[in-house]
Simulated scan of single mutants.
Amino acid sequence: MDIEFVNHASLLLEEKGSYFLTDPWYVSPAFGGWIQNPSPRTAMIEKLLSLPADKLNVIISHGHDDHLDEFFIQQHLADATFFVPKFKTNGLSKRIERLTGRYPVELTEEAYYVDGVELRCFINPDFTEYDSIVTVVSETDAVIHANDNWHEYPVALTDALNECLSAVPVENRYFFIQFGIADSFPVNYPSFDKQSADEMIESRFKSYQAATTANLKHLGLDKGFYYANQSLYQYPASWDRGSLYDLAQDFLRRNPGPFTQCVSGIDIKTSQLHDSPGEELFDLLLGQLERFLNKAVGGPVPVRLLTASDEYESGTVGYEASRHVWSRILNAELTLEAIIIGGMGLVHRPDQNISSIHAKVSKLAYLIQSKLISNGLNFLMESK
């Protein structure tokens, strides 16, 4: 089985021409504020877009937005076969039905086979009834897609997982599990001073490492992979440390253990990085949108699309917004008028009247939104 890491909790598995994609979250913000950090590699998304729908099986572990990109699913994956856990209520199944027009296959602990590949779903009763651990087992390899289930597993769950994996050699079992703070505590709690917040963050990391390492040992494994932690939100102005993802990586450097952090370009079976990970999807899409605008607007004054980390180039019209706002524009939730009119960014201008450029960009804003709704990311990627 080929195992490729896409981003966050998304894996692409291939077995004899059949593909299994977990938890796609590539473009849209989650929970109103999260963005992908880092964004997936363009090459991986291009590969996904090229896969035949009748050979693509999409597995959604649970209903959190960072495991389920509605825009990408509706635009690019709707014809694939979808699998979700059979929870006590069917809200997730109905959500997939709304996006794809078809009710998904609901997985349980009983084996379900797709072209000889076995799929099962396990729920930790001590954690939540609405999250799951999914196993994908071929003749030679097994993937344990545990996503957010980092809490130490009860004996009954461990026994069930080990029985499910028993036909696959231990060295061919690949365990993926979350490592990282997946909420805003204590960063967005101003009642805590800096020292208290730092101590709480360190304590949480220690808990995650202890629990995930215990689960690894319960499964009889020597190594595993951390993922489901590649996100970023806008921290308070008073927060002067790195992102929670950066702090997690710093903790792991100081406290190495049996897990390898999944990063763009990693070879799962060797744990080695490829030399050239390639361009990130967000950078490509924003660059393509900028090229489209300049071609359509015309004229001697270039238009530039900027994030806060970019420098304004004098003599241009620069539209600056956060990556979060740009993500909402790229998934057609907002238009460029969110910056021009809505004040959701900054407009940099040369020492001249730019009203005519504003007018053209405003008119193009709805054309762009329409094309993204009708063609998805192909609108920008096909002109690469």
Rank of each mutant, 00 (worst) to 15 (best):
Q36C: 10
Q36I: 04
Q36A: 11
Q36R: 09
N37C: 05
N37P: 07
N37Q: 02
N37I: 02
P38G: 01
P38C: 00
P40D: 14
P40F: 13
R41K: 11
R41G: 02
T42W: 08
T42F: 08
A43L: 05
A43C: 09
A43F: 06
M44E: 07
M44Y: 03
M44R: 10
E46N: 14
E46Q: 13
K47N: 05
K47D: 10
K47F: 06
L48V: 06
L49T: 03
S50C: 03
L51C: 06
A53N: 05
A53Q: 09
D54R: 06
D54C: 08
K55T: 09
L56K: 01
L56Q: 04
N57T: 09
N57R: 15
V58M: 05
V58H: 09
V58I: 12
I59D: 01
I60W: 05
S61Q: 08
S61P: 00
S61T: 05
H62L: 05
G63V: 02
G63E: 14
H64K: 01
H64L: 11
H64S: 14
H64T: 11
H64D: 15
D65M: 05
D65P: 00
D66S: 13
L68V: 10
D69S: 04
D69H: 08
E70G: 12
E70Y: 08
F71S: 00
F71K: 01
F72H: 02
I73M: 01
I73A: 08
I73V: 13
Q74E: 15
Q74P: 03
Q75E: 06
H76W: 05
L77R: 07
A78K: 15
A78T: 06
A78Y: 02
D79I: 08
D79N: 14
T81P: 04
T81H: 12
F82W: 03
V84F: 07
V84D: 03
P85R: 01
F87A: 14
K88E: 11
T89S: 07
N90G: 03
L92S: 03
L92I: 08
S93T: 14
S93A: 13
K94W: 13
R95Q: 13
R95K: 15
R95S: 07
R95I: 02
I96V: 11
R98P: 00
L99K: 00
L99Q: 03
T100R: 12
T100Y: 05
G101S: 12
R102Y: 13
R102A: 14
R102I: 11
Y103P: 15
P104R: 06
P104K: 04
V105H: 15
L107S: 07
L107N: 03
T108R: 06
T108E: 14
T108K: 05
E109D: 11
E110Y: 11
E110Q: 10
E110C: 07
A111M: 10
A111S: 09
A111G: 04
A111C: 07
A111H: 10
Y112R: 03
Y112T: 12
Y112F: 15
V114Y: 11
D115I: 14
D115S: 15
G116T: 14
G116Q: 12
G116D: 15
V117W: 10
V117D: 00
V117P: 01
L119H: 06
L119M: 07
R120C: 06
R120A: 11
C121E: 08
C121R: 01
C121T: 09
F122E: 04
F122Q: 03
I123L: 12
I123R: 03
I123D: 06
N124G: 07
